[in-house]
């Protein structure tokens, strides 16, 4: 990889200032960014490490649900969210492997918005709010296509607020080599409706399956999605799974998630 300067700010304000420089990029856990830099898919001149910013770490229960600091590693969410939001904790504990979970962070995952990443499904499926150094963004407005989000240049995710549903579950059909989701389905039942978010399948990244949300809102049982058919149009296709295969997996995993919730 090309050389760069590493800066290690101790606060969000310092990090934002350091990111103002030309060619600067934020580094969170680095579990995607560093491999991308080795392949020379990215070559920032300055990396601003978010790992030493204490105010961006931790999981805590508040009146807006569960707040997770942007620089909180997956392993910490898997452990500390368990008592409050088990479906979210389970999802975090199935990302990658233990070493990746010790470094990779929720903010890094959401900002990267990989179309097969798990966290975007949790954020969209929970109707989470993404809090940055300058504003709050609803999950519905945050994800804008493959590796594309509402974040501006140099904007940092400082925390993510998850409303806690009555029932929820995440089902992941893992691609065994990458351990990313070939398809992942997050189902959450709230007092005012059901949300179903799909990762790994959509050509534009994570999306809500609104037909399933309506059906499950009326009848929260696996059988409720039986009559629905998700079109293969707009589904990702690759050597691991054709669009029709992924469309079918979405339905299968939605049923399983509802049964497990």
């Amino acid at each position: 990889m090309h050389d760069f300067e590493l800066v290690k700010p101790a606060s969000v304000a310092e990090a934002v200032a350091a990111l103002g420089a030309e060619g600067a990029q934020a580094l969170s856990g680095g579990q995607t960014l560093l491999p991308s830099m080795k392949q020379r898919l990215a070559a920032p001149e300055r990396l601003v490490s978010l790992g030493d910013i204490a105010e961006m770490k931790g999981v805590c229960l508040g009146d807006r649900g569960l707040a997770v600091g942007g620089a909180t590693p997956h392993a910490v969410v898997a452990r500390e969210a368990k008592a409050h939001y088990p479906a979210l904790a389970w999802l975090a504990g199935e990302i990658g492997d233990p070493s990746v979970r010790a470094r990779g962070t929720i903010g890094g995952s959401l900002a990267n918005n990989d179309p097969a990443a798990c966290y975007p499904a949790a954020a969209l499926g929970s109707g989470a709010t993404i809090v940055t150094d300058r504003r709050e963004i609803a999950a519905d407005a945050f994800f804008q296509g493959l590796f594309t989000t509402a974040l501006e240049e140099g904007e940092i995710i400082t925390s993510v607020h998850f409303p806690i549903p009555e029932k929820a579950a995440y089902m992941k059909f893992a691609q065994p080599a990458s351990r990313f989701a070939l398809v992942g389905v997050f189902v959450a039942k709230f007092a005012d409706g059901v949300r179903v978010a799909i990762t790994g399948a959509g050509e534009d990244g994570v999306f809500r399956w609104t037909e399933a949300e309506a059906a499950l809102g009326a009848d929260f049982r696996p059988e409720a999605v039986e009559g629905l058919a998700l079109s293969a149009g707009g589904m990702l296709g690759d050597m691991h799974g054709a669009p029709a295969y992924r469309a079918n997996l979405v339905k299968v995993l939605t049923r399983r998630a509802v049964a497990a919730a």
């Binding site: 590493l6 560093l34 070493s99």
Partner: peptide, 16 residues
């Protein structure tokens, strides 16, 4: 291990 946590040392910067 870094502070007792397992990490893949090929994907961690020494300065970090």
């Amino acid at each position: 291990h870094v502070d007792g946590q397992p990490v893949k040392s090929c994907t961690v910067l020494a300065q970090d």
